[in-house]
Design a protein around this nucleic acid. Structure first.
Lengths: 225, 225
DNA sequence: CTTCAATTATCAAAATGCGCATGGTTCTTC
DNA sequence: GAAGAACCATGCGCATTTTGATAATTGAAG
């Protein structure tokens, strides 16, 4: 379990970090708001502990930004501001819990674990999305721009793999290994054929194209940036 | 959104209930632990607010029992016991939050909404289970007693329908409509055939049988009670 | 014991899914 | 701008899977 601490007071962050590490969590510390936000957005933490008052960017704004970006990492506020209205503000902004300094580590830990225990934290991803292309793993249904698209099993696997690696370049070797379970090169153009068929279905009739060829390397599924 | 309050102090429960009702929640009140537990188990609340000290059965025990019964209704403890160790105990027992009396209603409301906003509250069911028979909708995988079982698409649909209606009697007409999309009677024994095939796979080699015939009516999937 | 519903086995038709080969297209490099 | 490389699209056919029907057997209820 990975936890991010955003806290400018080195003493507090060291204290919390030490305790959590001892309990087996992987802890990262960001000492200002900007850095914290960047890390929270770009990496996948299971929980974040955020100070409300921070240099560069305050805690409330971080959380609001995160939530707007659809990141629902559980968040515990840590703050010296202990008034009812402060706590309400923190929770309303998208925080999941609010602990007033000074606090007992044991309570923080209990609250961390209460949040991590919520099924949401380990929720299974049932939906993948790249731009307006959506895959519902449960219903095995693909839609682009609201229109549903039918895929064959192999095409489905192919697309799932591409979506799970959206933005990255996916090589033929990766596809052979992970979509076809081949450990060798079949010396044919199977991949090309299926990529082509997939394109017919997900990119033809739509704008813009999402499945791009990376000459000499492989393919890459990505939306417009 | 339905909220259950388990609280013996009439004044507190009335106060909380009034506030929540004004916010559009449907509120039920149980004034002792036993009654509260029964309601929490038998009905489906989106959240429960539970006093720690209650006549008949204390709050901690209620929560522990609920969690053991696999109910993961979010729970907020409300208590006059405000020491760190009390709070930790409440959270450790399976509670999601702990608010010390006296409290501001606005904070309680903010905490209620923080919990309800967590996706967990509207988590999608990705797993069905009847006794030791499990269906993982995401992986489209069936296991009984840990052993994985292969099913054909139609058998899968059939079993899914049966599992979603476990305990009930499922008639042939229901099956024709929902598994075959037939709106008429095909005048053959398609259903019987598929039920038989399904039995071979899920009940043969296992004890006890889960798929029961209800003579003259249909079938019923259910575990031992 | 009889009857009718339910179960099971076997079969054949239908549908599907997949990969290959071929020939066409686009890109790169000189 | 020509040649070669990489990539793309299409149709075909094989193999397998999947399905539904028929018919024989079993078993429960009266």
């Amino acid at each position: 379990m990975r936890i991010l601490i955003i806290e400018d007071d080195g003493q507090t962050s060291a204290y919390v970090s030490k305790g959590l590490t001892e309990c087996g969590y992987l802890v990262d510390i960001a000492s200002n708001g900007k850095e914290g936000l960047v890390r929270a957005v770009s990496e996948d933490y299971d929980l974040a502990i955020i100070d409300r008052m921070l240099p560069e960017l305050d805690g409330l704004s971080i959380v609001e930004t995160l939530r707007r970006a659809n990141k629902d990492t559980p968040i515990i506020f840590l703050s010296a501001l202990g008034g009812v209205s402060d706590r309400v503000k923190g929770l309303r902004s998208g925080g999941d819990d609010y602990l007033v300094k000074p606090f007992a580590f044991s309570e923080l830990l209990a609250r961390v674990e209460a949040l991590l225990r919520r099924p949401a934290s380990r929720a299974v991803e049932t939906n993948l999305r790249v731009a307006d292309l959506e895959m519902n793993l449960l219903a095995r249904q693909i839609t682009r721009c609201g229109q549903t698209i039918e895929l064959q099993p192999r095409e489905f696997r192919l697309l799932e793999y591409l979506m799970r690696h959206a933005g990255q370049v996916v090589t033929r070797t990766m596809l052979l290994e992970n979509v076809w379970d081949y450990l060798f090169d079949p010396q044919t153009n199977v991949i090309d054929v299926h990529i082509s068929r997939l394109r017919q279905k997900i990119d033809k009739n739509f704008e813009p194209a999402l499945l791009h060829t990376v000459r000499g390397a492989g393919y890459s599924l990505r939306g417009p940036d």
